[in-house]
Design a protein around this nucleic acid. Structure first.
Lengths: 134, 134
DNA sequence: CTTAATTTGTTATAATATAACGTTTGTTAT
DNA sequence: ATAACAAACGTTATATTATAACAAATTAAG
């Protein structure tokens, strides 16, 4: 009766819970402050959990923000193909789920003949709400 | 006889020179060490120059590496549309110049109806040389 | 069980980036 | 040319993000 399902360790689960509950991307030290009541005391404990969670595709890093967001997209298997929409005004971040886009990018080859195994795309603009408020 | 051409300040020019001479992306503090002989002493002087150079499109930031590279692509006007190919092994970074790709992404709209003003795309894989050496 | 691998806890420190302040330089309009 | 304004500078201090190193505890597999 071995549990073959991806089994998270204690710290990994704590960190994932925080990130999944959050409305937007969280920064590492903000995660740290949020989990101190649950026994995690040091940055490294958070960073190690983050590293693992990224590796198994449960979360993504928003590189332009140094922040971490839960994966909502079954298409980006193990974080190999990620795309985000980021509002420059309210900082809202949404993972883009678009089959055409992901196919296009996954199959992209440039003239160097290099075949890519992974990509990360970040779009910036104004979200609907912020556009209206302008 | 006014000089209407984009005129860089002293520090901006020093930093740009270093970045343009480099074979790959440079990190801010590595730039700092390289320009200390030219009178720039503090991180902030480098970061301010970097900020300006990014703003006017002379350089780009490789977000996944926190490093800065000279723009070689007249298509990415003022850094609004950037794409890079990054080798996971030798860390070689190349700006991708591909009209189809940039058109595709510049015109991309997802179902949120949000129209994007800017994007940054980073591809990862093995470059030709590193693929051969495997 | 025991061996190996992973995860943890902890301290210290490295690497990246910005705040705040006052001064200097450059530009524009008179 | 000079006043007024904006941009860039220099400097110190500090904030933020991330990793090194090492020993102990836990978990998975044979």
């Amino acid at each position: 009766m071995t549990q073959k399902q991806e089994q998270l360790s204690k710290n990994q689960q704590i960190v994932l819970n925080i990130i999944e509950k959050a409305k937007g991307p969280l920064k590492a030290y903000s995660i740290l402050y949020n989990v101190q009541k649950r026994g995690i005391k040091a940055p490294l404990q958070v960073y190690r959990a983050l590293e693992k969670l990224i590796e198994i595709g449960k979360i993504h890093k928003i590189e332009s923000k140094n922040a971490f967001i839960a994966c909502k997209n079954s298409d980006c298997e193990i974080s190999k193909a990620t795309a985000f929409s980021i509002c420059n005004n309210c900082e809202h971040v949404k993972e883009i789920k678009n089959t055409k886009l992901s196919k296009y990018l996954s199959n992209f080859e440039d003239n160097s003949g290099m075949k890519y195994k992974k990509y990360n795309l970040e779009f910036f603009g104004l979200c609907k709400d912020c556009k209206l408020k302008q």
